Simulated scan of single mutants.
Amino acid sequence: MDNSQHTHIVKYKTFAWVLLILLIFTFSSVAITQLELGVYSVTAALVFASIKSVIVLMYFMHLKFDKKFYAIMMAGIVLLLASVIFVTFLDYLYR
């Protein structure tokens, strides 16, 4: 067994806070669909979904505790996905 590996222990209290935050964002994203935001409805839903996915990545997938290289790679993937979605919206708007 390699002794260079280290483990991290996350308290249950932290997971409870993360769960509470995710529930708040989920209820907020449901509530925002009741508002008439016009063309910004999808944008607001995507912003809430992005925030929730970053929280899940950081805590439940332990990206916060891993090497920074993994976080940089994940940020690059998220930026690529955001740019594809942006270009898709531009195509939809100017069609």
Rank of each mutant, 00 (worst) to 15 (best):
V42K: 05
K13V: 01
H8I: 05
V54R: 13
L35V: 11
S28F: 09
S53G: 05
A16Q: 14
S29E: 13
S4V: 00
F25E: 12
S41T: 15
G38E: 08
D2E: 01
A71M: 10
T14N: 00
A44G: 04
V42W: 04
D91R: 02
S83E: 08
L19P: 02
D66S: 07
L19G: 10
Y59D: 01
V42A: 08
H8C: 01
V39H: 12
S83H: 12
I51G: 04
L90S: 05
M61D: 03
Y59G: 00
W17F: 03
H62E: 03
M74L: 05
Y94R: 02
Y59I: 01
A82G: 02
Y94E: 07
H62T: 05
Y92L: 15
V30W: 12
V78C: 06
K64Y: 13
S53Q: 10
H8A: 03
T88A: 07
K67W: 15
Y12T: 02
N3A: 10
I77D: 01
I77M: 04
K64N: 10
L63Y: 14
L23R: 06
V47G: 02
K64T: 06
T14Y: 01
L23S: 10
S50K: 06
A44F: 09
V42M: 05
K11T: 00
A45H: 11
K11C: 00
Q34Y: 13
A31Y: 13
V30M: 15
V39I: 14
Y12H: 06
M58A: 08
A31N: 13
L37A: 09
A45W: 04
Y92S: 13
S53M: 09
A31M: 13
L57P: 03
E36C: 06
V42F: 07
I24M: 09
M74P: 01
K64L: 11
V18R: 01
V42Q: 08
E36Y: 07
F65R: 02
I24T: 05
L22P: 06
V56H: 04
A71Q: 12
A31H: 09
V54S: 12
V42D: 12
S29Y: 05
V47P: 04
S28K: 07
Y40M: 14
A75G: 10
L35W: 13
T26L: 15
I77Q: 01
G38F: 02
W17A: 07
E36A: 11
M74S: 04
A71F: 14
T88I: 06
V78A: 10
Q5A: 08
F48K: 04
K68C: 03
V10M: 03
L37R: 05
K64A: 09
V54E: 14
I21T: 11
I55M: 04
M58W: 11
D91C: 03
S83P: 10
H6N: 06
Q5D: 08
H62S: 05
F89P: 12
Y70C: 02
K68Y: 15
Q5I: 09
D2H: 03
T7K: 08
Y40D: 15
S41K: 14
L81E: 02
S53W: 12
F65G: 00
K68H: 12
A45C: 09
T26P: 15
